[in-house]
């Protein structure tokens, strides 16, 4: 057996298949979203996670229900992995009242208070200070669980990133920073934005342990997240994981991608996290073609149902426009 096959045996067939199914679910959900976008059912911005699925799926293996999750505007995967029902996520993308945020936020603003999913922040890096505050509240009130915060490499350009890293480390907060480094902030490559491109090094500069891991390898992503989460749960202060990954598609739905070459994209596509994992599963004899196809059909059906639900769901009545601007205002 190869080392990779040994790893697979160690995690067990059931868990491995679950990871694969989760990644496929995100991929197929977003494939459907893109289709609905082209059909004009979804408008505005739609930031797809295509290519980065192993990061969310791996990381969420280390996150438990009592934890809080803060994410950014490329957060369909995180909401789904958090257990937000597909119907609510899809309905939100379509701007329907049954959506996670009554349709008011759309793709970038998924929120679910009951599941400790704090969204949905679409100004780069602004979720980090909020995560610091959530972690501070946990520490001060003795509430169990940790806070996990997802953000991209673009966030590490911002002053808020540095301020938040410093506060979390200074106050030894139960906070896990999960950086999805897909090498681009919209169309500007990391190397064109930062003098020091080693992101984990920045975290170490604030005195917190930091790991860098291959974000295309779901088992590696899971292992790193688990290790870091465990340290945070021990009360040792914040930890940082950098997942090295890549977004296969445009920043939002369409852009001419003048900022990167086809070859670069193709070389990363060759490291598609779903294909890589499925292939290693079949090499290890854990997954047959027929089984994989059946899994795919099953997920497609689930996603179709969600799309149908969202399409048929009513929009919020216009008379509710001013509702919830402030507590108790307009009903």
């Amino acid at each position: 057996m190869t080392p990779a096959e040994e790893d697979l045996k160690a995690v067990g067939r059931e868990h491995a298949l679950d990871l694969l199914r989760r990644m496929m679910r995100i991929r197929i959900f977003e494939r459907k979203s893109a289709e609905l976008y082209s059909a004009g059912k979804i408008r505005g911005f739609l930031h797809l996670y295509d290519g980065e699925e192993a990061v969310a799926v791996g990381a969420f293996q280390a996150i438990v229900p009592e934890d809080a999750v803060v994410a950014n505007y490329r957060e369909h995967a995180h909401a789904i992995e958090r257990g937000v029902p597909l119907n609510s996520v899809m309905a939100e993308l379509l701007g329907k009242a049954a959506g996670t945020s009554r349709g008011r936020g759309g793709s970038m603003h998924l929120f679910d208070a009951a599941r400790g999913f704090y969204g949905g922040f679409a100004i780069v890096a602004e979720g980090l200070p909020v995560a610091v505050g959530l972690a501070l509240a946990r520490k001060m009130s003795g509430k169990p669980g940790i806070v996990t915060c997802f953000f991209g490499d673009g966030a590490t350009d911002e002053g808020e990133f540095h301020e938040a890293m410093n506060l979390a480390a200074l106050w030894k907060l139960p906070l896990l920073f999960l950086c999805e480094n897909n090498l681009y902030a919209m169309g500007t490559a990391l190397s064109r934005r930062q003098a020091q491109t080693d992101i984990a090094l920045k975290a170490r500069g604030y005195g917190m342990p930091a790991l860098s891991v291959d974000g295309q390898d779901v088992l590696a992503a899971e292992a790193a997240a688990r290790r870091a989460a465990l340290a945070v749960r021990r009360g040792e202060g914040p930890c940082f994981v950098e997942f090295r990954t890549y977004r296969f598609r445009a920043h939002s739905m369409y852009d001419p991608q003048l900022y990167r070459g086809r070859e670069e994209v193709e070389s990363w596509r060759a490291r598609d996290p779903i294909t890589l994992f499925a292939e290693s599963l079949s090499r290890a004899g854990l997954l047959g073609d027929a089984e994989r196809q059946a899994m795919e059909r099953e997920i497609e059906l689930e996603i179709e149902k969600a799309a149908c639900f969202a399409d048929g769901a009513p929009v919020e009545p216009e008379e509710d426009l001013l509702k919830d601007v402030a507590a108790g205002e307009a009903g």
Partner: peptide
């Protein structure tokens, strides 16, 4: 920016 943001997070928490 960070301590006002943290105030917001603490209030949410």
């Amino acid at each position: 920016s960070a301590f006002v943001g943290a105030g917001i997070g603490a209030a949410l928490g």
